[in-house]
Computed example of a mutant assay.
Amino acid sequence: MSVPHPTPADPGMTWRDRKRYLFIISGLLPLLIFVGWGLVELTGWEVFWFIGPIVFHVLMPLADTLVRKDPENPPPELVGWLENDRYYRAIIYMLIPLQYVATFLAAWIVTQQDISWIGYLGLSWSVGYLTALAINAAHELGHKKETVNRWIARIALAPCCYGHFYVEHNRGHHVRVATPEDPASSRLGEAFWTFLPRTAIGGIRSAWNLEATRLRRRGDRVLSVHNDVLNAWAMSVVLWGAMIALLGPALIPFIVISAGVSILIFESVNYLEHYGLLRQKTESGRYERCAPRHSWNSCAMPSNLMLLQLQRHSDHHANPTRDYQALQHMEDAPQLPSGYGTVMTLAMFPPLWRHVMDKRVFDFYDHDPSLMNIHPPKREKVLARIAKHKARA
């Protein structure tokens, strides 16, 4: 779609969102379950049950390498117009029911069809990756003001049993991001496998405390139907309880694997988004306002199309309610070496991660450790590595 965009230099200039019809890729990704099933039937190769990790760890990084970067931003004057275009929101509304359909299909296959244990594992694993996409959709809708969008966000979170994210992300993470107090902000020197239990447990604890505080201020009981954390968890119990009643207890490992994988992938993304970055305290003792420099950014086009421009994370934290299609690439923000598909794979291997990412943190802060969010147990080792890297620079 093109719109007139007058400028002093060229009053007749026209701006076109060249990614407009490519964003539908994200909405159609749940159909990968159908593709994987078809390929298994066609070839007999069970490896295609693992179509989720194949796409996210092989094809998406390959595409990010081959396709040019996308630093283009919509003109600031057109951001409001772009956000009001309902086409982009429709893609998210399409993604969530397709995700449910794909999940139900996979659940039926693993319980009602003759499938090997390798196929069971692969299909459950693939559903986990696609459920992580639903978390991303919930992330987008959970920031909106409309009640219906917030309820849809909770529905999207039900399959992964991570509904408390709705509370913690909006009222916790966005307040404490890039500080030592935030369980979802990883610290320099902190391995992903150390971060994972810290953020998972810390996120639940934070969501519960935030919701308990909100309810007490209203004069409501914490253990009540008004508790958004309990409501979200109840949706997961009802969903999977009904599915087990329909398909039998053979579905239980599928639930555990798919939900576990989706949480793993989601938290690996959390891990890379703010690694080592720190908001400084002002003279008043409060943290400075969150700015683009407090989030890692990437302009890799294929993964941005698949992930609703989640990689333009610097602008998201500066403007949390801004719709994904209008997010800006921030050139002055710290830049990831590649798209999320590549970088979240690196996160699984701490030595590789440190080799690639730590020096980027050192350089971004000009080797000043007081500006970095350092993992306390690793502080001495990190300081030694900073000094060594500075000597080489």
Rank of each mutant, 00 (worst) to 15 (best):
M1F: 10
S2K: 09
V3C: 05
T7K: 03
P8W: 03
P11D: 02
G12E: 15
M13R: 14
M13K: 15
T14S: 12
T14M: 14
R16V: 11
R18Q: 12
G27W: 10
L32M: 15
I33H: 06
V35K: 13
G36D: 06
E41I: 14
L42Q: 13
T43K: 07
W45N: 14
E46T: 13
V47T: 09
W49D: 06
V55E: 07
V58A: 05
E72I: 03
N73P: 04
N73H: 06
N84K: 15
D85K: 11
Y87W: 13
Y88D: 03
A90M: 13
Y93N: 08
L98A: 07
A106H: 01
I109F: 02
L121P: 01
L123K: 02
S124Y: 00
S124I: 00
Y129A: 05
L133M: 13
A134S: 10
I135Y: 07
E140C: 03
L141P: 03
H143Y: 10
K145P: 05
W151H: 15
R154F: 04
P159C: 06
P159R: 00
C160H: 02
Y162A: 00
G163W: 01
N170Q: 11
V175M: 05
V175S: 06
P183H: 03
E190M: 07
T194I: 14
L196M: 08
T199A: 10
G203H: 04
G203M: 02
I204R: 09
N209W: 09
N209G: 11
T213M: 12
R214N: 06
G219L: 00
L223T: 10
V225S: 10
L230P: 09
L230Q: 07
N231Y: 15
A232F: 10
A234T: 15
M235L: 13
V238T: 07
L239A: 06
L247V: 03
I252T: 02
P253D: 00
I255W: 04
A259R: 01
I265N: 04
L272W: 01
L272I: 09
H274A: 01
Y275G: 00
L277R: 00
E283T: 10
Y287M: 07
P292E: 08
R293Y: 06
H294I: 08
N297I: 13
C299L: 03
A300R: 12
A300N: 08
M301K: 14
M301R: 14
P302S: 03
N304K: 04
M306A: 13
L308C: 10
Q309W: 08
Q309Y: 08
Q311E: 11
R312K: 11
D315G: 01
A318C: 09
Y324F: 12
L327C: 07
Q328M: 12
M330Q: 14
E331Y: 14
Q335A: 15
T342M: 14
M344Y: 12
M357G: 11
R360V: 11
V361F: 03
F362G: 05
F364G: 13
F364K: 13
Y365D: 14
Y365W: 14
P369W: 01
L371K: 15
M372G: 05
I374W: 03
I374G: 03
H375G: 01
H375P: 01
P376F: 05
P377A: 07
K378F: 11
V382R: 06
A384D: 09
R385D: 15
K390E: 10
K390S: 09
R392L: 08
